[in-house]
Each structure stands twice: as structure tokens, then as C-alpha cells.
Deep mutational scan, measured.
Amino acid sequence: SAVVMEEGSPGEVPVLVEPPGLEDVEAALGMDRRTDAYSRSSSVSSQEEKSLHAEELVGRGIPIERVVSSEGGRPSVDLSFQPSQPLSKSSSSPELQTLQDILGDPGDKADVGRLSPEVKARSQSGTLDGESAAWSASGEDSRGQPEGPLPSSSPRSPSGLRPRGYTISDSAPSRRGKRVERDALKSRATASNAEKVPGINPSFVFLQLYHSPFFGDESNKPILLPNESQSFERSVQLLDQIPSYDTHKIAVLYVGEGQSNSELAILSNEHGSYRYTEFLTGLGRLIELKDCQPDKVYLGGLDVCGEDGQFTYCWHDDIMQAVFHIATLMPTKDVDKHRCDKKRHLGNDFVSIVYNDSGEDFKLGTIKGQFNFVHVIVTPLDYECNLVSLQCRKDMEGLVDTSVAKIVSDRNLPFVARQMALHANMASQVHHSRSNPTDIYPSKWIARLRHIKRLRQRICEEAAYSNPSLPLVHPPSHSKAPAQTPAEPTPGYEVGQRKRLISSVEDFTEFV
């Protein structure tokens, strides 16, 4: 048969007729292969192709491409040299491709048809291009793949890379869960390890502090508590009631339409708007009261037996805890006409967050109470924005700035309102402590230090009264110190430094 060459192609190359033996071998191979691939376009007849790359030819070592076609129900084999250009295909004639002069020997084609199974398996396991790669995943090629499931790999992101949580363990979102698992493993320790309690022994800490320079003076030496005195035992138990972190309780009120001037209507609300609910979820963490331990979680007086509701929101960081007394989460009882059960919590909070959804101005004093010092007013606006402002009593104007209003988005509203309420509550605590000038409020841990110092002074006084020969370590507060001759004046800087060093040991009130 003659071949018409394309323009620009090399000279004529004689194409030899395939021997009958080659056709029989390739026909047997075509019957084993699956003929249901995917359909081509209507211009080209339905056909199945599979590209198999052999590394070497037997005796020649030339890479070839073998295409199996099922045109007219008769499979045909096409061998081509890759750099050459194939002729145009037609549905009426068999596929013809040019070969190099080196394939002119018909014996070479017979060798190609009689490829060993080793070469076929190696060509099938190679990388296939384009559409033949999808075909190689079918059941027909499963014989050339190794048996057994593939090893499982770690989760992959859409980009093909490992997620960040699997790369950096410290930033993994499941870090707290692993800590819980470690605690569970520790709890399952053997009885021999049960006595080993991690941490620092208080006796060891005391020993280090006792021999430090801070205890060089007799006034700073630790003293032993009497065991037989019940009054001192009660004082030590009272110390446990003062937490070592700051605590805040903040009221949250929802004002519906037409309720801006009605205290009873505001306290009777059992739910609010959708934006109000989203605002609550951002204030803190939802907790169930019956599962809380009052000595570990500050509840601000809420009952854990269901008297004040089942849930509330709280927030904490390293040095403070805040609980929100939310009116809509507290039960509304029919027998309580004046809502006294709610007001006994909300009316005693220094700061209230008022979500004013009424469309009218909310005035300070609508919720009557002796300790309502500051109101954080949240007014929802259009386009997911809110107006946040402050209202306070006249005696609080020096501590709280009420002249600045803020426009905040719904997303950042819980954070801004919480921070403003916490700052206002700190100012309210300082303002409330002014009624007792001898006990200015600095912080909870300073209050613990003052309680310890008062307890020490009482013990020293009782020891001096029981044994008059012992001198008083600290003179009583009601006694007057003996007159001392004025010492020589020293520079102001040295006096300030000495006073600062003494105050650092005794108390921190002056620095606050």
C-alpha cells in the first residue's frame, strides 16, 4: 500500500504489510482489554486508547508507543517513533504512522508483537499521559499493580500540603484535648505513684524565703500560729474566702420596643432579638451553673441549684474572672410580681450592659438600685453597626469618660462592650471603697496581704499580753509611738528610695 506524505515531511518511507502472525497476537491482546472507555466527539468514531511506554525494544532499544483501536470491530496495532508526526486519522481507513528506516525489517515488528510479559508489566506500571491515566485505574490494570491496600497518609489540604495544625504542634487546635488526655493517663497511674504529687513543697518555699535578706529584721520574721485558738483558725479560714484573682460581676439587660421607661417590662423579658443573642455568645463562655464549683469559678452570688437559672456566661484571663448576670437567662416566676429574684442580683451590680433595642433613649435610673454606678448603652444600628456610649452617676464623672461614643461592628461589639464594662467596674470598686478611707481597694491579692498582716499583728499583741517580758514586734495601731529626735535631713532622693524599699516589703498600697 502507498502512503501520501504530508508537506514538509521527509522522503517516502516504505511501509510494510503486517504479517498475519502479528495480527493474531494483537487480536488476542485486544480481546482481554476493556472496550468501555469514554466516548469521543461525534466527528471521530468511538475508540479506546491506552498509551504504553516501553523502555527498550528487543534487539533495537527504541521507545515506541502502542495504540489499540477497535475500529470496525477489528483491533489494530500502531507502532510509531515518538519524534515523528502521525498522519491524519479517518473512520474509513486504518491508522497509518511513519516509521524510521531502522524499523524497515519486518522481523523487528514480529519481535515487538512478542514482547515478554516482563516488558508489558513494566510498561503498564509506568506513568501514563492524559486520558490513558484514568483508564489505567480500571480493573483491567489491577493485575499489573501490587496486591494489598496502599499505606494511609496524613490529611492533605486542597493545595496538596499538610495542614498547619499537623506541622506545628504548639498551634494545633487540639492541644488542650491532648492535655486532658495526659491528665487522664496520670489519673490511671499505679498505686505506688499515687503518693507522688507534682509541684513545689510549701515548706521548701518557706525555707528559701526565711533565709532571704527580706527577713533580716525582727519585724519581718515569720511567727508560728497558735493551734489552740479558734479565733485565729477562723481568720485563716476567712483568708480562703478572698480569692487571689480579681472578680467582676456585670449585669446584662435587654430593652425591647416600648420598654425604655418600664423597669418591670425590662426585667420580665425572657429572650431578645437575634443580634442580641449573637452578642451574648461573644461576651464569654456559656457555663452550666450546676456543674460549677464556687471555689474555682466566680459566680457573683448565683445559685447553683437552679434558683437563678441553669446557664450563664463568664469570662476570665490570667488575673481576673468576670460573670454576667443576664436577665433573660434568669427564670421569670409568676409568684414574683416585682421580679425581686432578678433584681437582687442586677440591682447590686456596679455596672450594667444595656442592649437598647427600643429605638428610644434609655435613662440612668430606670433600673432603681443603690449600686448602679455605670451603664454601657448598646444601640443597634443599620448595616451591622452599633452605637456604644457610657452613662454614669455624677459622683463617678471624674473616673469615667462619658463624652466619647463609639461606632462598632457586630463582630467586635462583644469585645468592646466587655472591656468598657470591666474598666468601669474597676473604677466603681475604687469609688465605692472611698467610703472607708482606711481600706482603699487596690486588688484582691493586696486584700489578702492586708488580712495576713492584721492576723500577724493580733498574734503579736496576744503574745505580748500573755508574756509581758516579750517586746511587741508591731505596736498596736491605737498606741502612739514614742517621740523621736529629728534626724539629720537627708537628700530627698535617698528618703524616697528608703521609703520605697520599706513599702515594698510591708505593703503595696502607695504604689497603687
Rank of each mutant, 00 (worst) to 15 (best):
N220L: 06
N220P: 14
K221E: 15
L224F: 13
L224T: 13
L224V: 13
L225W: 11
Q230Y: 13
S231C: 14
F232W: 14
R234C: 09
S235N: 13
L238G: 08
L238C: 07
L238A: 15
L239Y: 07
L239I: 09
L239H: 08
P243L: 05
D246G: 06
I250R: 01
A251D: 03
N261E: 09
L264M: 13
L264R: 09
I266G: 03
L267I: 07
L267M: 07
L267Q: 03
S268D: 07
E270C: 06
H271E: 10
G272I: 02
G272N: 02
G272E: 02
R275Y: 00
T277V: 08
E278N: 13
F279L: 02
L280A: 03
T281M: 10
G284W: 05
G284P: 01
L286D: 11
L286W: 04
L286T: 06
L286R: 08
I287A: 08
L289F: 08
D295Q: 07
V297C: 12
L299G: 15
G300K: 13
G301W: 03
L302N: 15
G306A: 09
G306Q: 12
E307T: 09
D308T: 10
G309Y: 08
Q310C: 13
Q310T: 11
F311D: 05
F311R: 05
F311C: 06
W315D: 06
W315I: 03
H316Q: 14
H316C: 14
D317I: 00
D318Q: 13
I319T: 15
H325E: 08
H325Y: 06
I326C: 06
T328K: 02
M330D: 05
T332A: 09
K337F: 10
H338P: 09
C340Y: 15
K342Y: 06
K343V: 10
L346H: 05
D349M: 10
F350I: 02
V351P: 00
I353S: 00
V354C: 03
V354P: 00
Y355A: 00
Y355F: 04
D357A: 03
D361G: 06
F362W: 13
F373Y: 15
V374D: 01
H375L: 11
V376Q: 00
I377G: 01
T379K: 07
L381S: 03
L381F: 04
D382A: 05
D382I: 02
Y383V: 04
E384S: 08
E384V: 02
N386F: 02
L387V: 13
S389A: 08
S389P: 01
S389C: 12
L390R: 02
M396K: 05
E397K: 07
D401A: 04
S403H: 07
V404H: 08
A405I: 15
K406F: 15
K406G: 15
K406M: 15
L413V: 13
P414Q: 01
F415S: 03
V416E: 03
R418L: 04
A421K: 00
H423Y: 09
M426K: 01
Q429M: 12
V430A: 06
H431S: 06
H432W: 15
N436R: 07
P437D: 13
I440C: 10
Y441I: 12
P442R: 07
S443L: 14
K444L: 06
W445Q: 13
W445D: 15
I446G: 11
R450P: 15
R450W: 05
R454T: 14
R458S: 15
C460R: 08
C460N: 10
A463I: 12
A464E: 10
Y465K: 07
S466I: 09
S466A: 09
P471E: 14
L472E: 15
P475H: 14
P475E: 14
S477K: 12
K480M: 10
A481L: 09
A481F: 08
P482Q: 14
P482S: 13
T485K: 09
T485D: 11
E488N: 10
E488D: 12
T490W: 09
G496N: 09
Q497Y: 09
R498A: 13
R498W: 06
K499Q: 12
K499S: 09
S504D: 14
V505W: 07
F508G: 15
